[in-house]
Simulated scan of single mutants.
Amino acid sequence: MRNIFRHLEGDKAIWAVTALLALFSFLPVYSASSNLVYVVGNGTTMGHLFKHALLLLLGFGIIYGIHRIPTHFFKGLSLIALPVTILLLIYTLAQGNTIEGANASRWIQLPLVGFTFQTSNLAAVVLMIYVARYLTKIREQEIKFTQSLLPLWLPVFIVIMLILPANFSTAAILFAMVLVLCFLGGYPMKYLMGIIGAGVVFLTLFVLLAKAAPGLFPNRVDTWISRVENFWDGGDTEGDYQIEKAKIAIASGGLLGNGAGKSVMKNFLPQSSSDFIYAIIIEEYGMVGGLSLMFFYMLLLFRIVVVANANPTIFGKLLVVGVGLPIVFQALINMAVAVELFPVTGQTLPLISSGGTSIWMTCLAIGIVLSASRKPLVESDGERIDEENPLEILSGQL
């Protein structure tokens, strides 16, 4: 056991929080999976628990493998990964609307293994790395909007436009995180305000086009438009049904909860093991359990800020913030949806909810943060090795 921990480098607190969240997830996932078994008629509770354990095991394998990669390598890797993810997003939208009868506008089927893969999650991580790389490259230059339009904002808007029709919440979160990263990276505020304005105009035109021609975007556009509209105006929709059941679960949990596995609303809440698992956690473990879980996410945020501040390179700082902040932001949105502070978004609770792609991409991001938290390599004379990316040197500073 000591030999295993010896190979785990980087911030120990992040390792500990990640492991604790993963271990705790077994209890609510096992409990909430009874909805899939006895209501939906899908598999067995032990089968869902075993699948969740396998996904987490693979996820921690991703963390270990990624955290061993030197941070500066991600600069060059983002140049390779971004066009690949764009092609995957195009393929995801073009493949059709169903996989085995289910809406598949956000997923692709992985051959042989039988898993589905949500390409937008991978695109979000890759795009944040790419933006961090670009901001690092221009940090000592006078930034002009026209010069950054093609290398920075064109890829950003292409990725967001490909995600938007099927997954508005992910597109909105990604756009917000890119703006935050650009602000922290020193990108002029006047240009960011222009980008925000352009984004609002584009979204308005997109919604008007979707309403004028409903068959033009046959994926999930109507779903997320109706969710936002009904959040503000009210109405009898599936989203309202889920919110009402989630609030009942939270209210019945009280201060200390009903006990592990004793949730009642898990049998009535359709997404009890994924999107609304936080409501089930409060029902079973009370406000104490819900606030404790929030504390661990805040601790993760604190350690992410510490790692970013301690990293000796500009790229490392921006990289940690770019891939680490969305994890906590997604967790807070998931919790906010359960208490009706946000419309239903479909965002899972990182490392807690069941689901493969979300777990793997969260682990990928955590692995990158841990890579940035490792002590830099040193030469024999005690000076740190140059952080310049060899892939960028070979590519002629693309």
Rank of each mutant, 00 (worst) to 15 (best):
F5K: 05
W15S: 07
T18V: 11
L20D: 07
F24D: 02
L27R: 02
V29K: 08
Y30F: 14
Y30G: 12
G41I: 12
G41L: 11
T45Y: 00
H52L: 06
H52I: 05
G59V: 09
I63L: 10
Y64M: 08
I66V: 15
K75M: 12
G76Q: 09
S78L: 11
V84S: 02
A94E: 08
E100S: 14
L110S: 10
Q118P: 03
S120R: 10
V125L: 05
M128E: 04
L135T: 09
I138K: 13
E140G: 05
K144G: 00
Q147Y: 04
I160C: 04
L162V: 00
N167K: 10
T170L: 08
G185C: 04
Y187W: 04
M189Q: 14
A198S: 13
F202Q: 01
A212D: 07
A213F: 14
N230Q: 07
N230T: 15
G239N: 00
I248Y: 01
A249S: 08
L256P: 00
N258K: 15
S272K: 02
S274P: 05
G286K: 02
G289F: 12
L293I: 15
Y297P: 05
L300W: 12
A308S: 15
N311D: 05
N311T: 07
V321W: 13
L325Q: 05
I327N: 08
Q330G: 04
A338H: 03
V339K: 07
F342Q: 10
S353C: 01
I366M: 15
G367C: 12
S380Q: 11
E388Q: 09
